[in-house]
Each structure stands twice: as structure tokens, then as C-alpha cells.
């Protein structure tokens, strides 16, 4: 059963004396793209880490809701979460295809190699590139490969940390299209980014974090299938960002 929403209640994270998150609460819904904004060190990546089950919150709760109750099994949960982080999670000595096939095996993806090939087609890594060691990839190629890894197991929750980094115009536009498709297919999308232009129009939920606190939250309902019409515009996002981060 797919996750329909994520409820974050009063989540705090401390690293020793440093407080990375202070009582953050928010709701993430299926079919919505939430832009998580904030200056460096605001706690965005920590929140992503907690949502992805990699980081344990010091206090507070995260509930992953299905239609028939909460998902509590960590393995079932991770099967539904796709993460694109700052690092690519790729082994430099393995080729792009081998990396994806390896992760496919860990995720229990049926026909992992075929699925990897299909995703490499989607992210436009050609035959020559996919059979080269990942250490020879450019930043943009690594980002495409990392995106393919995040989508490998067809997750219902996508947590993306600076997904547009290193992508050229074509890559960025393909990613924006992929995000629009994911949104239409009722996935939960959380995107941490400073590239406000890239997510303009797609975003219907904005959250701003500053020094670990949620300082702003705004939602706009969108008509189904018209993601480009009612989302936050670039100007909206820029105003919200500057208003709350100085």
C-alpha cells in the first residue's frame, strides 16, 4: 500500500549542543510538490535525513500514512522512499550501469539490469557513458545517474536535495518534466533547492526553514493536470525566500 501523506510533528534534532531542527511540524501530501527553502545551515538536509529514515529525530514524530493506517515497518518504508542527496552514492570504480544494477539488487527490483537500462535511457546517459566507470563522469552526468538511482524502485516518496545542481539546460528541463510527471502520478515530492526558477510553476507548497525553525509555510491548491497554472511563480518564490531569510 502506498504512502498517501507524511506528517511531521514537532521534530527536533540536536547534535551535541547544536540544535539543527527546533520543533518542526508540517504535512506533505501525495500529488503535491513541496519546496523546502532556507539559507545554508537552516536544517533542510537534516529534515530530509529524518524523512528518509537515515537520521533519528531527537524528539517529535514522523508518521507515514497509508490509506489503511501508518506504515511502521522500516524496510517497507525505505522501499517507498527515493532520495537524491548532495552526494551521488555511486562507486567510482563501477560503471553507471553496474552501480544501478547493484542498487537494484539491494532494492529487490525485478529485472534490475533491464530497469537500470530503461532509467539510463530516461536520464539520457548514452551507451558509451553508462559503461564507463562512474569516476570518469562529469558533475552533471553523476547527477543524472543519481537521479536514475533515486527512481530505480519506483518510489512513492521523492526527497530531492538540490536536484538541479550540475545539470545543463536540457538536463534541468528533463528533470522538471520528470517532477511534473511524478506529481501527476500522485507521489509525495519534497525538493530542497536554491534554484527557484527551476521549480517555479511546479511548486504548490512552500516551506521556509531558518536556524532549524519553520518560519513560513504556504500552500496553493492546483487543478489536477494543470500543474503549470496555479503553482508558485518564480517571483512568488523569490519574494517568500527573501522575506524570510533576509
Amino acid at each position: 500500500m502506498s504512502i498517501r501523506s507524511i506528517s511531521v510533528s514537532n521534530v527536533t534534532k540536536r547534535y551535541g549542543l547544536h540544535r539543527a531542527l527546533a520543533g518542526v511540524s508540517l504535512e506533505l501530501d501525495a500529488g503535491s510538490l513541496c519546496a523546502l527553502l532556507g539559507p545554508n545551515g537552516a536544517g533542510k538536509s537534516t529534515l530530509l535525513g529524518i524523512l528518509s529514515t537515515l537520521v533519528r529525530a531527537s524528539s517529535g514524530q514522523v508518521a507515514y500514512r497509508r490509506d489503511d493506517g501508518d506504515e511502521r515497518d522500516p524496510l517497507a518504508l525505505r522501499r517507498q522512499i527515493g532520495v537524491l542527496a548532495h552526494s551521488s552514492f555511486m562507486y567510482g570504480e563501477l560503471t553507471g550501469l553496474e552501480n544501478l544494477a547493484f542498487y537494484g539488487q539491494l532494492y529487490g527490483v525485478a529485472e534490475a539490469r533491464a530497469r537500470a537500462q530503461a532509467l539510463l535511457d530516461d536520464v539520457e546517459l548514452d551507451e558509451r557513458a553508462r559503461n564507463r566507470p562512474a569516476r570518469t563522469y562529469s558533475r552533471g552526468m553523476l547527477q543524472r545517474l543519481a537521479l536514475a538511482r533515486a527512481l530505480l524502485h519506483d518510489p512513492t516518496v521523492l526527497l530531492l536535495d538540490e536536484p538541479f545542481t550540475g545539470l545543463d539546460r536540457t538536463g534541468a528541463s528533463s528533470l522538471a518534466n520528470a517532477l511534473a510527471d511524478a506529481k501527476q502520478s500522485e507521489r509525495i515530492l519534497l525538493v530542497v533547492t536554491h534554484d527557484l526558477e527551476a521549480i517555479a510553476g511546479l511548486t504548490d507548497h512552500v516551506v521556509v526553514l531558518k536556524r532549524g525553525k519553520l518560519v513560513h509555510e504556504d500552500r496553493r491548491s492546483q487543478a489536477v493536470g494543470r500543474a503549470d497554472e496555479l503553482g508558485f511563480s518564480y517571483e512568488d518564490l523569490k519574494t517568500i525566500y527573501h522575506q524570510h531569510t533576509g
Partner: peptide, 18 residues
């Protein structure tokens, strides 16, 4: 150390395996 490069240990820990 290899699992630190490109943070691959996190990649492993994110997988739905024990």
C-alpha cells in the same frame, strides 16, 4: 573509507534491506 567517498554508506543504508 571507500564507503565515505560519494557517501555510499548512506546509499546502502537507504536501501530496503536489513
Amino acid at each position: 573509507d571507500r564507503e565515505r567517498e560519494s557517501d555510499t554508506m548512506r546509499g546502502l543504508l537507504l536501501a530496503p534491506c536489513s
